[in-house]
Amino acid sequence: MQTKKMADQQANQENTHVENTSGSAQRARLLERLQAGPIDTFTAMRELNIVRPGARINELRDMGHRIMTQRLTLTDDQGRSHRGMALYYLSTNPPAEVTA
């Protein structure tokens, strides 16, 4: 029987590049991006290579990060409109149109 290697569960700057799809690397990329400002679901998927941003957000919240969500309508890359999409931001770094 062949044994499988477990993915490295520790994220640091060297292994958080978008090619690294481990949960810890995705959380690290997303948190770093949130510290720079708000990010929406489509942007997280496209730029950070995170297939399920909502799951990573929930994990970050479970770790104690105060992440807020604003629902809005976004247009995808094919020009289709999607209602109820998420815009995530740290409670200390709200987008200009949101009052905390």
Rank of each mutant, 00 (worst) to 15 (best):
R52A: 11
L31F: 01
L34Y: 08
T73F: 08
R56P: 02
G79Y: 04
M85K: 11
A96M: 07
L74V: 07
G64K: 02
E47K: 12
E19M: 14
G23P: 06
D77K: 14
T41F: 03
H17V: 00
N15E: 00
N93G: 01
L30M: 15
I39D: 00
V18F: 14
P94Q: 09
P38H: 09
P53H: 04
R71D: 08
T69A: 11
K4N: 04
R46H: 04
F42R: 06
A96Y: 11
T73K: 15
E32F: 12
E14S: 14
R71P: 04
L74R: 15
H17Q: 15
A7N: 08
R46K: 06
I67L: 09
A55I: 04
L48F: 10
E19V: 14
H17P: 04
E59M: 03
D76W: 13
A86W: 02
S81Q: 11
G23C: 14
P95W: 07
V51S: 14
T16A: 08
G64T: 01
Q35I: 10
M6L: 07
N93D: 05
A25L: 01
R61Y: 04
L87K: 08
E19D: 13
I57K: 03
T99I: 07
M6I: 12
R29K: 07
N93W: 00
T69C: 13
F42I: 02
S22Y: 05
P95V: 07
A86T: 02
H17Y: 14
M85H: 08
D62C: 02
M1W: 04
N49L: 00
M45T: 08
N58E: 08
N15T: 09
R52Q: 15
N93T: 01
T75V: 14
R46T: 02
M1D: 10
D62K: 10
A25P: 01
E47F: 12
Q2G: 02
R33C: 05
S91E: 14
R33Q: 11
T73D: 14
Q78E: 15
S24K: 06
I50E: 03
N58H: 07
E97P: 13
